[in-house]
Write a protein that binds this DNA or RNA. Structure first.
Lengths: 342, 342
DNA sequence: GGCGCTCACGCAATCGATTGCAAACTTTTC
DNA sequence: GAAAAGTTTGCAATCGATTGCGTGAGCGCC
């Protein structure tokens, strides 16, 4: 196809030539700069449309010293064994991705486990993005504080630790733990175990909520009922089996996550225990599989996708120079069969 | 802190000034260009180290007309109801992210469901990335072909359709379906249902494998045993219930995914059917939860993380101008209790 | 000492946009 | 009709790197 086809218009210069104006005018016309007359603007815009010109974002971002990219860093502690396949993360990532797309930002995914977030300083993750969303604060509170002091635009999904200098978005962990335990108490259970590692503040808060509910019923917490179940499933299984073998007396369990709850479910059943008749189980997160286990899992729902949007609003707000507050998302109890409610 | 502290070295120019050479020399020194003397190179490199200078990737990429970014596009058909929370995707994403990081590429995530991949043409996803990894080809084979003809560097996770012009990496779906069915046949099952939608070629291949196994045992496939179970769990449940109520005679099920298999498991059990005694179940994918359902799920394992690496090698290979072949990853049977093997 | 060769480095253009300021053009005002 | 005011456009620098080409220094050789 020789003559007819309009030649490729790839740069602003091409477009300007086509319209017989300068690059500067073309730029302003496309950006609706009021300095440009309506006629010229119209002309440029329709010409751009016609020739399928779209701006080179990288050139623009380079000139404007920004990137239109937000990084998402999954802070996965290797020893905790919690890994990315936890559906929880994907739901949240989906929420973040959608929200960023709405604002015309791109999402850069940093997946490799971060030993020390300060190692990110020189890395391109830092250099290339206008802001960072950390999923989980793990044990790096201090380092996150230091990053925040360097005026990094950042937000952390986690727990509002005392002297933090960064913005936090998180679930209502205390309330969630409370609701889970209270639910079991109302069903008449009294020997309620707590399954999960509480070294991270988020989880510790859930445990506090659990303790509070027990307290309201005048129950003294039994240390034998607090089990440090690792996130990694096959180890979780071992720990649960050990506990059962040790002959601890319990009639129900509050789990720190649905994944652990599901592992608990199957381990108990293999041990000949009926759920919920012998032991009631409550999870946390309401991952999509929770509704389809057998028995279906009673759990605490966090609106994870929504959390993703909040996280995005928060970083973008900071980039706009706003003063962004922390956010705590309420959690709600979703009653299904595993807790034995009628 | 006034005097002492070395002033910030942010640009190549700063570094060059510090060393008393030109920008050009500095650039070449850092890139180990042989044109530069060893002495100068050493000097520049140690100076860069000392002052914590790291190159501005965006400036470099801009100059070099590349992006060091690979986009990952999840082709999720909305009507199929399969959504991103399927742990399968996260595993694969993790593999891709790790592999890209190893090659110093960044991962741009395009999440919003793509109605027509050609819509991507003008978008920045296309413009901003050096290559694209499509997860799933859905029904967009033609469009993918068209993209490929425009010399997009791209690779598709899916099935090698007949006249494709793009590179495909995929699992051995036919073999997987075959192994699943064969396993059940060897256990003496004869009324083997197939649960899943076979409109996508990947799934159709699994079904073919299933049929092949049946054929080897001289079994005529019964159309009543092929159930189009949607990916969406609550609809899956309905479909399964309908089937059970219709009184179809079956003694086992091959499912197109673990998620569907898990839904099947709990639906059957709620219906008072025992797994595996009454009905044996085999899944597909070996997601991490498969090992912790009750009963534990027999399934076909695809090494998803490894698949991620292969996908990356494939796009990067194309960028290097290599002639990249399709890859088919073998699947293996993982026997657990849900199939009733001793 | 002069010629030519090699080696190491600098000059300046370039990638594609944005924007302060100057210049040109148009309109208003007396 | 000319100056002032207002409007529209262009010039050129800039962001931070890479790279083709030109040039000067150093050296060997006769």
């Amino acid at each position: 196809m020789p003559a007819k086809t309009p030649r490729q218009v790839t740069s602003l210069q091409d477009l300007a030539d086509l319209a017989g104006v300068s690059r500067a005018t073309a730029s302003r016309a496309l950006n609706n700069n009021p300095m440009i007359s309506a006629k010229t603007r119209q002309k440029l815009q329709s010409l751009a449309e016609k020739h399928g010109y779209s701006i080179n974002r990288r050139a623009r971002d380079f000139r404007l010293q920004r990137s239109s990219v937000i990084s998402v860093v999954f802070m996965l502690d290797i020893k905790s064994g919690q890994h990315m396949s936890d559906p929880f993360f994907l739901d949240m990532l989906g929420g973040i991705a959608d929200a960023l797309a709405d604002h015309d930002y791109d999402l850069l995914l940093a997946h490799a486990p971060i030993v020390n977030v300060l190692d990110l300083s020189g890395s391109h993750i830092m250099q290339q993005s206008d802001g960072i969303i950390f999923i989980g604060q793990e044990e790096q509170h201090e380092q996150l504080n230091e990053l925040a002091e360097r005026e990094q635009h950042m937000v952390v999904w986690g727990y509002p630790v005392a002297d933090k200098k960064y913005v936090v978005v998180g679930g209502d962990n205390r309330g969630g733990g409370y609701k889970a335990a209270k639910h079991l108490l109302e069903l008449g259970r009294r020997r309620i175990a707590f399954f999960g590692n509480t070294t991270y503040p988020e989880n510790a808060a859930r445990h506090e909520g659990y303790l509070q509910a027990l307290g309201e019923y005048g129950i003294e917490p039994d240390p034998a009922l607090k089990i440090d179940v690792p996130f990694e499933m096959h180890r979780a299984r071992e720990v649960i089996i050990d506990m059962l073998d040790s002959g601890v007396d319990l009639d129900s369990v509050v789990c720190i996550s649905d994944v652990i709850a599901l592992a608990t479910l199957s381990t108990l059943q293999e041990h000949g225990l009926r759920v919920p008749q012998d032991i009631a189980v409550v999870g946390y997160d309401d991952i999509s599989l929770a509704a389809y286990s057998s028995p279906q899992l009673t759990t605490i729902r966090q609106n994870i996708r929504h959390a993703g949007r909040i996280l995005v609003d928060s970083v973008l707000g900071q980039i706009q120079g706003e003063d962004v507050p922390d956010t705590m998302l309420t959690s709600e109890l979703v009653v299904r069969k595993s807790s034995g409610a009628s």
